[in-house]
């Protein structure tokens, strides 16, 4: 196991990560097999904005037609994480990452995922799973830039 060979790189082993990853893939697969829909998490942002914004861009048919089930999908994600926490006996947990990092990072994530046609689930899980060249280029780009950014932020002494 990689976790035993490279303990420095995998201080928490790999099992929980692999199990979690397989479940994420299964969740997307259940929806795909039943409906043919490839569900990404970031389209929810724009489809939900169509409830409150009159902007044409958010009220295109593809958003208005999918906004109700995307709310249900997102609600399922929240509930699933909640159920795991209860059943596993984990205590509820709050991040120590500073609010300005979350807020500013969130704005950039909102812009970048929508401009770039997808996020970690759309491009990263479903696009890569489709062997899509567009998605692979996008994923390599965002992971590379994210590594650079996180390392620079750490170098600048910002923690957490």
């Amino acid at each position: 196991m990689a976790g035993e060979l490279l303990p420095g790189l995998f201080p928490n082993g790999i099992l929980r990560y692999a199990i979690g990853g397989v479940l994420i893939g299964l969740g997307a697969s259940v929806i795909y097999l039943a409906t043919g829909i490839i569900a990404g998490a970031s389209t929810f942002l724009e489809s939900t904005l169509s409830y409150v914004s009159g902007l044409d861009r958010f009220n295109r048919a593809k958003y208005v037609a999918s906004r109700d089930w995307r709310l249900v999908f997102t609600g399922g994600i929240v509930l699933g994480a909640f159920a795991y926490t209860i059943v596993s006996g984990d205590s509820f947990w709050t991040t120590a990452v500073q609010p300005w990092r979350l807020a500013l990072g969130g704005v950039l994530v909102g812009i970048g995922t929508r401009l770039g046609k997808g996020c970690t689930s759309g491009h990263g899980v479903c696009g890569v799973g489709s062997a899509s060249r567009t998605s692979i280029v996008n994923v390599v780009t965002f992971i590379g830039v994210a590594i650079l950014t996180a390392q620079l932020v750490q170098l600048a002494g910002v923690s957490p």
């Binding site: 979690g20 990853g21 994420i24 259940v30 929806i31 399922g76 994600i77 699933g80 994480a81 159920a83």
Partner: peptide
Amino acid sequence: GGLIFGVGLAW
């Protein structure tokens, strides 16, 4: 699907 997805992200 969302529930399983969410369990995976938490796990």
